[in-house]
Each structure stands twice: as structure tokens, then as C-alpha cells.
């Protein structure tokens, strides 16, 4: 059974159709990235799963249809969504951001809170240093780390990350994306990444979907794909 499966999913912002019947599968333990230019539908795909946009078609989390669920219920089914622009709680301190997330985890993992917190501080030591600062006082990169940490601490089964490298220095972007496989292994995750930076994403993911204009142009194992393939498929039409 796939962790996440979309069949014939279309999405609409008012009258505007942003996804046109896409099919997508995320196997358990897989790291999949959605590539494509601005407006291709990467963010909308994640928002469709989180029920933040009106959709038609079938969306299943571990075989269970979530098409009629509210966003907060999808989260409670184990889908963590780290939105683009980071979406941290800027008035809350780093510590409060993290304990908020820890409080939303399934009851069965509540015994792991302090170990998980240590693990997160291990990946992102700067968060431990700044734990009493308000999130607004963090830099863009630090806020991104906080957003990912928050996603992890809710102990999801599926982690969806939207454009984590947006606006970050290349070095930091590489560092953050480079952690993804480790995170998957340590936290038993399946990861869906929406990323514009194809060069970075190809190195850290198992499989790639190239989107364009709300449709899937190409699905391929990341290892079989070069940057030129991605560019060709997304800018010059179907391969």
C-alpha cells in the first residue's frame, strides 16, 4: 500500500484550474520530489493533500480516502505539511513552536518527546541556542529549520515540504536538502518535496515527478534522470 496516492486529482482556486487530473504515488519510505517551473502545480499538489484547496478526484493516505477531510484532520492522520515561506508562528518562541508540534503527535509516540527534541537539536543546533527567541527574530534559514523541526516533532508518517530552499544561500540549501534521506531513515518517513531547484533535488530523492501547467509531464527514478531531461520535459513539452 502506498503512503500517499492521488488519482485523477484536479484542483481549483475559484474558477481557475490549477491541477488537471494528476496521478501520483508516494510509496512508504520513499523520497519523491515534484519539480517544475513556477505555476506548474507543485504547491497546489501539496495543498490538495492538506485539503487547503478545492479538489476533485481521489486522494488516499495509507489507503484511506481523505477527499472529504478538513486540513486539521489530515494533519492528525499523520501528514505534516511544511508550507513555503516557512509558516512559523512568529510571535511564539522557538521552544513554544516546538512544544506545540510535540503536543500534536499521536498518543503512541508521546513517550518519545524529549528524545525527539534532542534529535532535532542534533540536526539543527542553532535552534537549541535560540530556543527562547521569538521565531520572528530568526533568519530565513533558521526559520526553515524550525519549520522542518516542527513538522518532525508532530511525528508524521508523511512529511511534505514546500520549497525549503527558497531564498536560502546555496550552501544552506544543500545542507537542508542533504538531511532529507537521514530524516526519512531516522523518523520512518515518506517524504514528498516540492522543489524548484532541480539540480539539488535530483541528488536527494528517489523518484521525480516533473509537473507543468497542472499536469504530470514525466515520472522517473531520480538516478535515471539528468538535469537536461528535466529541463527538456518541463520547458519543451512531453518527452
Amino acid at each position: 500500500m502506498n503512503a500517499l496516492e492521488l488519482r485523477g486529482v484536479s484542483a481549483y482556486y475559484g474558477q481557475v484550474q490549477a491541477l488537471r487530473g494528476i496521478d501520483l504515488a508516494l510509496a512508504e519510505g520513499e523520497v519523491v520530489s515534484l519539480l517544475g517551473p513556477n505555476g506548474a502545480g507543485k504547491t497546489t499538489t501539496l495543498r490538495a493533500v492538506s485539503r487547503m484547496v478545492r479538489t476533485s478526484g481521489t486522494i488516499e493516505v495509507y489507503g484511506r480516502s481523505i477527499s472529504r477531510q478538513r486540513p486539521e484532520n489530515v494533519a492528525r492522520l499523520g501528514v505534516a505539511h511544511v508550507p513555503a515561506g516557512r509558516g512559523t508562528f512568529s510571535d511564539l518562541t522557538v521552544q513554544e513552536n516546538l512544544s506545540l508540534a510535540s503536543g500534536m503527535r499521536p498518543r503512541s509516540t508521546s513517550g518519545l518527546v524529549s528524545a525527539d527534541l534532542d534529535a532535532v537539536f542534533g540536526y539543527f543546533p542553532i535552534l537549541a541556542t535560540f530556543r527562547d527567541r521569538r521565531a520572528r527574530a530568526l533568519s530565513g534559514g533558521q526559520q526553515q529549520m524550525l519549520a522542518i523541526a516542527r513538522g518532525l516533532l508532530s511525528r508524521p508518517r508523511i512529511l511534505m515540504i514546500d520549497e525549503p530552499t527558497l531564498g536560502l544561500a546555496p550552501q544552506l540549501a544543500r545542507e537542508i536538502l542533504g538531511q532529507l534521506r537521514t530524516l526519512r531513515d531516522d523518523w520512518n518517513l515518506s517524504i514528498l518535496l516540492a522543489e524548484q531547484n532541480a539540480a539539488l533535488a535530483l541528488h536527494v530523492t528517489d523518484r521525480v515527478y516533473v509537473l507543468e501547467s497542472g499536469t504530470v509531464r514525466l515520472v522517473r527514478a531520480a538516478a535515471e534522470l539528468t538535469l537536461a531531461d528535466v529541463a527538456a520535459s518541463s520547458y519543451l513539452g512531453p518527452s
Binding site: E72, P83, G87, T88, F89, L100
Partner: peptide, 16 residues
């Protein structure tokens, strides 16, 4: 406070 601060992010975390 989280719901006030950023309603969308709060929803995405499962806050009602």
C-alpha cells in the same frame, strides 16, 4: 496563540 498567529500553519499542524 498559534491559531491567532498563523491560522493556516496551525491547521496544517492539526490545531482545530
Amino acid at each position: 496563540r498559534a491559531a491567532t498567529d498563523n491560522a493556516e500553519s496551525a491547521r496544517l499542524l492539526g490545531v482545530r
